[in-house]
Write a protein that binds this DNA or RNA. Structure first.
Length: 216
DNA sequence: AAAAGTCACAACCGCTGTACA
DNA sequence: ATGTACAGCGGTTGTGACTTT
């Protein structure tokens, strides 16, 4: 795939001006989020769609929390990172008002140092985690009869943040539910030839209930 | 006071996944 | 089944602010 880069298109790069912010905000207010390829045209900004999207998501979106991370937030990041690895958008999804970029920056600057993990060591450590424990949410085909409750996704739009809490809980409950479902499915399909006797595929040592407790 | 070093954050880049024709 | 365009993500870099020497 050859998406034209900002450079190739001759669009503006670098820090955003107040005027650009205003134009982008006005455009989103008028047309809503999404259709990012149309945003530069609609707003009259000489920016690529990626730049517009990033600026909106990381800076201009309402309810974005700025400033230091609380100890609760840091704690949650640490626990979620242990579970999910560098899946910043997922982690950020559990921290109201925080963006994936914020979480990533926080991890890369403050937390790595705090944990006293050198980058190389961290890389190795991450690999181990990936191999053994991190949940990698897989996209699932949703049948028309049995749909997961993803309604909270739609609440990301402006002004609906407060409605998301219950749905968030429901979302995680669904994840856990589906973990069990997947495990059952896997157990029925698992062929002995793929796994040597006594050998673990990793999921056996992965107590789903513990994750739920961890997050509560 | 000034230079050097460090830190935090914003933004860019390249890649992957998905939808659709 | 295949190709294309778009959206979104994570890694990385640039830069300004702050601290130390």
């Amino acid at each position: 795939m050859n998406t034209p880069t900002c450079m190739q298109l001759g669009v503006r790069k670098g820090a955003w001006t107040e005027e650009e912010d205003f134009l982008l905000r006005k455009c989103i207010q008028k047309y809503g989020e999404g259709k990012w390829h149309l945003v530069p045209v609609r707003s009259g900004l000489n920016r690529c769609r990626k730049s517009c999207r990033l600026r909106w998501l990381n800076y201009l979106r309402p309810n974005i929390k700025r400033g230091d991370f609380s100890s609760d937030e840091v704690d949650l990041i640490l626990r979620l990172h242990k579970l999910l690895g560098n899946r910043w958008s997922l982690i950020a999804g559990r921290l109201p008002g925080r963006t994936a970029n914020d979480v990533k920056n926080c991890w890369n600057t403050r937390l790595l140092r705090k944990l006293n993990i050198a980058p190389q060591k961290q890389e190795r450590k991450c690999k181990t985690i990936h191999e053994n424990a991190i949940i990698k949410p897989q996209p699932r085909k949703l049948s028309t009869t049995k749909k997961l409750n993803f309604s909270w996704c739609n609440n990301k739009s402006i002004g609906n943040e407060e409605a998301s809490t219950d749905n968030d809980i429901q979302w995680w409950a669904n994840i856990m539910e589906n973990c069990n479902e997947i495990e059952e499915e896997a157990a029925t399909k698992r062929t002995p030839s793929l796994l040597q006797e006594g050998q673990s595929d990793g999921w056996d040592e992965f107590p789903v209930d513990d994750i739920w407790n961890l997050l509560n």
